[in-house]
Design a protein around this nucleic acid. Structure first.
Lengths: 188, 188
DNA sequence: CGATAACTGCGTCAAAAATCACAAAATCAG
DNA sequence: CTGATTTTGTGATTTTTGACGCAGTTATCG
């Protein structure tokens, strides 16, 4: 438990024993059943989730339809960055796509850990750099690629995603209708 | 000189005199003429720019056309986060839209300053949180809004941007053709 | 200041994708 | 195992947006 997080951290930046213990004290472990919500629209986000095992999605509710803004798998950090940092109600939700085990980092405890440990704050900065890079690339795919090309690009760069997430779910993530996505797929 | 940056920092997190001096030692000030490049596609990004005065854009070159991915004004930090962190050649460029004065933070010096000063690293983390929030919202506008709505949303939330940037430039930023944008505009 | 370039608007036409409708297939829950 | 629900595939049609062309206006730069 928390083992996955520990090895993930090693790939970013090593932490001293003290810092690792401090970080652990910010964490609660929890499992969610399939379709359970980690964060519900309207709530203020108080946590950062690290996925030990399983998969989640972030989504907006638009006229009763779920528009997916991101998918998250093992070794991903997940949160609603806007709600977390502004402490305003979240405008989107996070839902488990399958049985999912996460490490929950409490926001206030984490902020205290940032202050107490330069190492931990440095880790936080590096994770944010990765998340910003990923988000930037995703935005660019919308500006540089036509819908069909976005799908091809996804197939080329994240083929595994299509194995774990249904086409219906992927469609809104790519900003494409379900039917068009189905046609793109059969045309390959 | 660096005055704008100093007051901007106050709005994020105060720095001790020592940290502020250390941060200053990472900075070179420079002016760019209109249309001059701050970063050219293919180069490895070594800097973070803080705009003291003026305006810039980040853009990709697609079949000879400039696709704008972001606009930046006074008090904005600008960089190519992917190239900066991976030290791979940048796939996009940064260009001054008018005469622009920036503070250039050298990457290696800044990393050293992060290590030497917890305060500065904390500042860096907070800036990244803001940038990630902004980027996330921009991505969401592509998934949740139709082209026409994206334009309306921009008018509502950043009316000033349209005062400083031509419609032609805004079009690719919104992922819309110049002609469609012109039509949306006249239809309001 | 004057020539050149860039920007904007609008019309037509074509292409792409969305929508609607329905059937088949796969998956899930009891 | 089986009925119910979700997912997927496909056709017909409509809507939206893109592409091209051209004219008028505005900005820019030497």
């Amino acid at each position: 438990m928390i083992r996955t997080l520990n090895s993930y951290i090693q790939t970013i930046t090593p932490l001293s024993d003290n810092s690792w213990k401090l970080l652990q004290s910010c964490i609660t472990e929890r499992s969610y059943k399939k379709a359970e919500l980690l964060l519900k629209e309207g709530q203020v986000c108080q946590s950062i989730f690290f996925i030990e095992e399983g998969a989640c999605k972030s989504f907006h509710n638009l006229d009763g339809k779920e528009i997916n803004t991101a998918f998250h798998f093992e070794n991903d950090f997940v949160t609603n960055i806007q709600s977390l940092t502004s402490q305003q109600p979240a405008s989107s939700s996070i839902k488990a796509l399958e049985k999912t085990t996460v490490d929950i980092l409490n926001k206030n405890k984490l902020l205290a850990a940032y202050s107490a440990s330069h190492e931990i704050e440095s880790f936080g900065r590096k994770v944010l750099e990765l998340l910003l890079t990923r988000q930037t690339l995703h935005t660019e795919s919308f500006k540089l690629l036509a819908p069909k090309q976005r799908f091809d690009h996804l197939v080329a760069t994240q083929p595994d995603l299509l194995q774990r997430v249904s086409l219906t779910q992927v469609a809104s993530y790519l900003g494409i209708s379900r039917e068009s996505l189905s046609r793109f797929r059969s045309a390959r």
